[in-house]
Design a protein around this nucleic acid. Sequence first.
DNA 1: ATACCTGCAAAATATTTGCACCACA
DNA 2: TGTGGTGCAAATATTTTGCAGGTAT
Lengths: 148, 148
Amino acid sequence: MPLPQTEMPGRLQAYCAERGIRMTQQRRAILRVMETASKHLDAAQLLRKAQKLDASVDRSTVYRTLRLLKRQGLIDELDLMHIHGEGHYYERKLNRDHIHMACLRCGKIMEFVSDIFEKLKGQVEKDCRFRIVVSRLEIGGYCANCSK
Amino acid sequence: MPLPQTEMPGRLQAYCAERGIRMTQQRRAILRVMETASKHLDAAQLLRKAQKLDASVDRSTVYRTLRLLKRQGLIDELDLMHIHGEGHYYERKLNRDHIHMACLRCGKIMEFVSDIFEKLKGQVEKDCRFRIVVSRLEIGGYCANCSK
DNA sequence: ATACCTGCAAAATATTTGCACCACA
DNA sequence: TGTGGTGCAAATATTTTGCAGGTAT
């Protein structure tokens, strides 16, 4: 049976509570957006959505919270091949790492879970004696539709 | 026998010539730096080194040339887990893709070539019917020394 | 109570663009 | 000779920081 690819809303806040991280009105709004977002928000989108929940949220609080969540290993930072601009995209870390594919023609972002990817990480840990904390595989190319 | 991991200097210029790309004094300097660099230069370092060969090289020409080389698939763009700042790093594309590992403690960058990586890319192309143009696997964690 | 967070404004960093001029092919 | 490249300066985009005051625990 495949592992679930999402967790219940509230889980990010629960993690923060477990780790003794102070919860504020603004962080609650930002975490809620991260939890319910379909996918891949950049800082500006995250700010806009969080402000709908709490109008007082400031851009710097968004960046400070993103840094916090990154340090805690609760979110991943992506480039998505910089298909739209130079910024970063964020998504909450789920049970299994996945690969991101970005179509250079239509801009679609796809995800893919692979046992081979897990095996590759195992090889790096073993052969290089490297303890992996975070990994990111991003692929640019042409999706099935755009290759036709 | 392992494939060579470097190519002779001049190769980048040769590629550009083959493709009918106009060669200028400034581009020559920039390509030369890319060719002879040990590894992983960011735009500012590339500018500084190129200016030693041709003092007239401007920052915007560096960025314009990087964009050109990226589009031509002659260089790869890396984040190296943003160990130093938010910019990008560049390296010329070699015969085989390799994985980059960045030690979050000492900052060392390591590279690793793996057949499993090749196999993984093959799987993506086949299972997702995705035609890969560029791929980037970056790993953050702790190197053998810093894990001790 | 107090350590930690926040908004605001400004700074820092990174990259791109408009334009007049210049140089490669 | 003409297309495309260049430097320069200014604009844009993205992220960070100092500070005075506010809030969660």
